[in-house]
């Protein structure tokens, strides 16, 4: 059954937090917990969501939750899952929420280890495309061209010169039981993927685009819009990996103009037409492959 505003758990589990207004990451955490419900044990590494949610005595998770070491989201999830299972507790969800840096950079080893062991956990990467908690530094998931405080856009280098690491397919390459991409811009799709993950045994990885108004240089009310546009213009895609197969959930057919998506954001303001061309070419190459090889 599709998740709707009507049948969704009315409880709020991430509430009163101090995330910036319009924070995409907090929407991802909130929505996922509403799907998983009160039997969630959440692990969040040092990062935005833990910084805004766990300041004693202001504790903003209504469910069981813990901060892990930055590199230790997946490994702590493993321990939490094993420990709760040993206590004879059933039907709980060990769920991790780590950012792009915590997942694709410092946490990738522990994540790979957990997938390799087949631990029964849900790992959600909320991707805002840079180290936002420390003030917008480049991560392995910062896209080509983006200006961050460690990839400044100057006369010599125009922002980040490397493309985004492909975490979805890295997770899939472990032959993980379930992996998916999502965006907070299409929240029902994301929540349905979380719901699906919660019914699958073994390791689950969901990669959700979660714009950061502060880091992206967009108005605080534009978060959801940006998270939709990135899919509509083809720079992100909604897909799943299951039973050894990739599946594309949504092919926009005709893309909206990436230049429009990019030019609205402070972090891409400096891009030249040539830069945008590079981005479009790389998008087209990816989609050609997706359309050829994925179902």
């Amino acid at each position: 059954m599709a998740i709707t505003a009507k049948n969704l758990d009315k409880n709020e589990y991430f509430y009163g937090h101090k995330a910036c207004a319009g924070c995409g990451g907090s929407l991802a955490v909130r929505a996922a917990l509403k799907v998983l419900g009160e039997k969630s044990a959440a692990v969040l590494p040092a990062g935005c969501m833990s910084a805004v949610g766990f300041n004693f005595p202001q504790l903003c998770f209504g469910n069981n939750a813990i901060i892990s070491m930055f590199a230790g989201t997946a490994s702590m999830l493993t321990g939490v899952e094993a420990g709760l299972r040993r206590r004879g507790i059933k039907d709980f969800h060990a769920v991790g929420f780590a950012g792009d840096g915590g997942t694709a950079d410092i946490g990738i080893q522990a994540l790979s280890g957990a997938i390799d062991r087949g631990d029964d956990i849900i790992y959600i990467c909320y991707d805002n495309e840079a180290y936002m908690n420390t003030g917008i530094q480049k991560s392995g998931l910062t896209p080509f061209g983006a200006r961050t405080t460690t990839t400044p856009a100057g006369k010599n280098i125009r922002g980040n010169i490397r493309p985004k690491k492909n975490m979805f397919e890295i997770a899939a390459a472990h032959d993980i039981p379930y992996a998916a991409t999502a965006t907070i811009g299409y929240i029902n799709d994301f929540m349905e993927k979380v719901d699906k993950a919660s019914r699958i045994k073994g390791t689950k990885y969901i990669h959700v685009i979660a714009p950061c108004p502060t880091g992206w240089g967009i108005p605080v009310d534009a978060t959801v819009e940006a998270a939709r546009e990135i899919v509509d213009c083809g720079l992100w895609y909604l897909a799943e990996y299951e039973n050894g197969e990739f599946k594309i959930n949504r092919d926009p057919g005709e893309f909206t103009d990436p230049a429009e998506y990019l030019k609205k954001q402070g972090r891409f303001k400096h891009l030249t037409d040539e830069d945008v061309d590079v981005i479009i070419k790389s998008r087209d190459k990816k989609w050609e492959k997706i359309r050829r090889e994925w179902k």
Binding site: A5, Y15, L27, R30
Partner: peptide
């Protein structure tokens, strides 16, 4: 319920 679904702070209840 779109406002409820998309509120990052979960402050809109139906």
């Amino acid at each position: 319920g779109q406002c409820y679904l998309y509120c990052p702070d979960g402050v809109i209840a139906m």
